[in-house]
Design a protein around this nucleic acid. Structure first.
Lengths: 340, 340
DNA sequence: TTGTACGCGTTATCAC
DNA sequence: GTGATAACGCGTACAA
């Protein structure tokens, strides 16, 4: 009776001489089932090459098997790392990953997201920073009734809906490391306004300076938007300061690469004339010259845990996925003691 | 009668006082429909906030609205660019993008892909290089009855199932440019065996050398696998050659960045002591120091066109999407005349 | 342990 | 133009 060439559950039932409910039980591994019957049905399934239709399943179960990744992150490597972590968590399950970029700048961003959630009704969505830091977005998901987990730089939500890293602590430690090396004039390249990660990282930086009794003049602060180019521009401003900073902490690696670029353009040696520290530990950090000292952000692990939270059976209370991830300092060659 | 809180087509029909088929006609913009009836139904749809259920649609239409991206590309930026192009093409349509990485090395790669296609039954899949260059993969799609479009470095398939770039020509031109600058000892860092792109690019390189009457000793050829690290290792071997090459063409940017890294490690100046040319024009090309002369590969545009081919109505013969895309040389600062 | 009847939300057929 | 009715493929009460 199959029109599309694909065998259906009915075909299996007919050939096996059972009802389709029995076949359904085999598929869903119902415990109460005769071993002999199960074997026969499984043999027919294999023989016919039967594959359950996910659309029909989705309709009958009133839920589908799509996990959305909602993001507006400018960093390709970061997005890929998150996808990697999600796919690890989804591997072997019946879920698929659908990727949904949204435009942070757009006035209709919330509407676009709602539109997506209403039309597609994914089983759940993973919210990546920076859009994950927007409470309105989380609320929109909740209102529509879509499960979500947020990734971020601070616990912005309940543990079962949040996976966070300790950016503030990690940056405080990284900055303390610079101070230990003897640096006193340390510049900061901050992230974009409105990014919680930018706020946390800057906070950690300022705390470390305060602990070290070091002042932070306005001339040693510049903001970027996490892109290489913005790091370049910000570094140019910082390097014009008199006296020049002997070290710069950049709130992500991309911008730190821009800092190194800017230093080289004006003939400064890194780390001889300028120490640089980044954040993220994306591949670019190891690939610039000199290799960049940076904070490793375990974004793929976070995405993996977040996804497992998302698809976890709310009933079955197995092992809880962690909600807090530690970022650690990776020491490479871009930091040295100041030369003066 | 709605259990999930979502209004269904039945609710709309009841409130509007029409049959659900009429509502269906409104949704699907059937031309034969009373204007007055249509207006009333549309008002009710808006009032109730009705959104058609894509799962039910998929079941009734016997097709879903998922476009798969099948890839095994090691370059994050390239994958992101492809996703970007796909999403541009999908924007405003009812299609969603599902991303499906596969493991090229795995012996079960073909089985895994078939498994995905059979279970998910996407409307179509976009095959990214290098997996797109595998004819067995294309055949697997065809056998399962899944539409596909391949991206690649040569026309490997019929135009409606292929989007290609002219890698060979572009590399020939890039190499000719090096020769024009006066280089005679030019090293090659090839791509992985089995990559069609690697073969085409190497072919273009060899053709240019042949045209210039320049020999290519074994000591000036090394193979990489498109990663930074492999470029680093390959460059170390090439730079050990005596006499040393004055220029190196690398089959992609990542490896070219590794070349620059290796040169700097042994104190060589780029481009003073060594000229370097890459391929792809990913952001890393502009961000290394010195900025990398490279071939711009219009991968996002290719992905966009490929996706439009995929979702094009086979009946309606509108404007054909192009199948061939031109890669062009981008001149930056990593090339100079040889100093000797 | 297994089968029957029906519902999920939509589209297609074929009358009116 | 519009409306009953039957698919689409699978899951679930409830009965046997």
């Amino acid at each position: 009776m199959q029109r599309t060439g694909q065998p259906t559950i009915n075909d299996v039932a007919r050939v096996a001489g059972v009802s389709k409910k029995t076949v359904s039980r085999v598929i869903n591994r119902s415990p109460l089932l005769g071993g002999e019957t199960r074997a026969r049905v499984e043999a027919v399934i294999a023989e016919l090459g039967y594959v359950p239709n996910p659309q029909a399943r989705a309709l009958a179960l009133r839920r589908n098997f799509l996990i959305g990744l909602v993001h507006d992150n400018p960093n390709a490597q970061t997005v890929m790392n998150v996808q990697q972590g999600m796919l690890e968590a989804l591997h072997g399950t019946e879920f698929e990953m659908v990727v949904r970029p949204i435009d942070r700048g757009s006035a209709t961003m919330l509407e676009d997201l709602k539109h997506f959630l209403e039309r597609q009704r994914p089983y759940g969505v993973l919210l990546m920073p920076p859009v994950s830091e927007n409470d309105l977005v989380a609320r929109a998901c909740a209102e529509i009734g879509c499960r979500y987990v947020r990734m971020g730089s601070a616990m912005l939500d309940a543990p079962e809906r949040m996976v966070a890293s300790n950016d503030r602590d990690a940056v405080r430690a990284a900055t303390a490391y610079l101070i230990d090396q003897g640096h006193r004039r340390i510049g900061l390249i901050g992230g974009p306004h409105g990014f919680r990660s930018a706020r946390e990282r800057r906070g950690g930086f300022e705390e470390a300076l305060a602990q070290g009794g070091i002042s932070l003049p306005r001339s040693l602060i510049a903001d970027g938007n996490y892109t290489f180019e913005s790091g370049l521009v910000a570094a140019e401003r910082l390097l014009d300061a008199v006296p020049r900073p002997t070290a710069i902490f950049s709130c992500n690696d991309e911008m730190a690469a821009g800092v190194i670029h800017a230093a080289r353009q004006r003939g400064l040696d890194v780390p001889g004339d300028l120490s640089v520290v980044g954040f993220d530990d994306t591949p670019i950090a190891a690939h610039v010259w000199p290799p960049l000292t940076t904070v490793r952000w375990p974004i793929a692990s976070m995405a993996r845990s977040a996804t497992l939270k998302l698809i976890a059976d709310p009933e079955a209370d197995g092992v809880e996925e962690p909600s807090l991830f530690l970022s650690t300092l990776i020491r490479r060659a871009s930091v040295a003691a100041p030369s003066d």
